[in-house]
Design a protein around this nucleic acid. Structure first.
Lengths: 230, 230
DNA sequence: ATTCGGAATATTGTCGACAATCCAAGGTTG
DNA sequence: CAACCTTGGATTGTCGACAATATTCCGAAT
């Protein structure tokens, strides 16, 4: 039973539309498809070697993942990101991941706790030689482990489908802004400590603080070099 | 009848798939399609007089609305609801609508405030002769007005798409359990008062309390007559 | 009789073609 | 010259048919 992040993990596709969905999502997240650019069905269908039917189904899935927006008779476009929209996402994340941390403190199994500790250790070791890409991946895995530890399926669904996808999307835009790795590591440690001692209240407070700090960091970083985003 | 929320309102469909989506959603929420029942594409395509392509697109939209679940090569089924799942939804709602209330206190325009007050007044007048259906509709509109007042598009999207749909779905199941209208009205009044005086902290506390109370009410009501759900 | 295997049937996935709608270019008119 | 209409091209929406997969039903073997 893969109770995991079905949207980020690449399960082998059982259907063509599924495969194209994965490929398209990767293309969007890697920036091969520019934000705001139009998605031409005939063109991409030929590119990926599938019929328009399959491609349209893939697009429908992308739409439900919030990565593209479709209008009737006008076609689909890759979402374009505004700074305000990123701040909105952080606001929601603060609320939901705070809840996740509290629930994780209550419900995490020992195996899940071990896994979380291991992820933190990994993160600690990779801290100094900051391989940007690798660091982001570890950070994502860490947050995911806590979200999964909440054991609230609805919460897991929402965070994975509506928010984490978008966070990935934004990150490649602001990759230069640097995720302040050292401070984040300290905060992660505090969160882990609270969860480990089953202190839900404190875990929630620390997680909310952690995400709020990231939000402020982002806010500041693009009020400075807003020219970079153009 | 149904007043203003983009996802529930039936904007005139520009496309066939859109029309079928609206019809199917209504059928599910009205109980014409049993929870857990299989969705036969050929059958429903004939029923609604459209091709399977259009119907499949409608199903895709239903899936993104969390009203049906699809498995590769196995088809789609109307979601089946467990009590545990309902409690999960309440947990997430408590967190998100609490946030919405706090933001609404900060960002609501005077027009939106007036509208909210009017909805509360409506609710007050309809309190005694409890027309179940009408009451639920008003309650929904009230909560929607606050969520919209948050002015956080991401939050609005998540609540409308992932949670309120499901709340509708559950309500017809537990319609007998009664939404404790008098107490809810008091709590609504308190929330409105806090928002009106721009007290975000208090608005969040009251909203969270309100939803937690509803959660406990539901919890109790189906631990008693769990036989009714069968 | 029960269980296993395989053919027959039904359902979903995929495709290419047609119809409806939107977009762009060019010409007409004030 | 600008604004509007027309017309041609391209894109999306919709359809019916074919292919791949799942389900059902029936017979055979233990």
């Amino acid at each position: 039973m893969d109770s995991g992040f079905s949207h980020t993990q690449d399960k082998q596709p059982k259907t063509l539309a599924d495969r194209v969905y994965t490929q398209l999502r990767a293309a969007i997240l890697d920036g091969d498809l520019e934000p705001g650019s139009k998605i031409s069905e005939p063109e991409l269908a030929k590119t990926y070697g599938v019929s328009r039917s399959s491609l349209r189904e893939a697009i429908a899935k992308l739409e439900s993942s919030n990565l593209v927006e479709r209008q009737a008779n006008l076609g689909a476009r890759v979402i374009s990101l505004s700074n305000a929209s990123l701040l909105e996402i952080y606001q929601v994340r603060e609320s939901l991941e705070g809840l996740a941390a509290r629930l994780a403190a209550q419900h995490m199994t020992t195996a899940e706790l071990d896994n979380m500790h291991e992820l933190l250790a990994h993160q600690r070791s990779f801290c100094k030689p900051i391989a940007e890409k690798k660091y982001q991946s570890l950070d994502f895995d860490f947050h995911s482990s806590i979200v999964l530890g909440s054991h609230n399926q609805r919460l897991i669904r929402i965070l994975s489908r509506d928010l984490f996808e978008l966070v990935h999307f934004y990150r490649r835009k602001f990759s230069g802004s640097g995720p302040r790795p050292d401070q984040a590591l300290i905060e992660h440690s505090e969160i882990v400590a609270a969860i480990t001692r089953r202190d839900g209240e404190m875990a929630e407070v620390m997680m909310r603080h952690h995400i709020r700090a990231a939000r402020e960091h982002a806010k500041k970083s693009f009020t400075d070099d807003s020219s970079l985003t153009a």
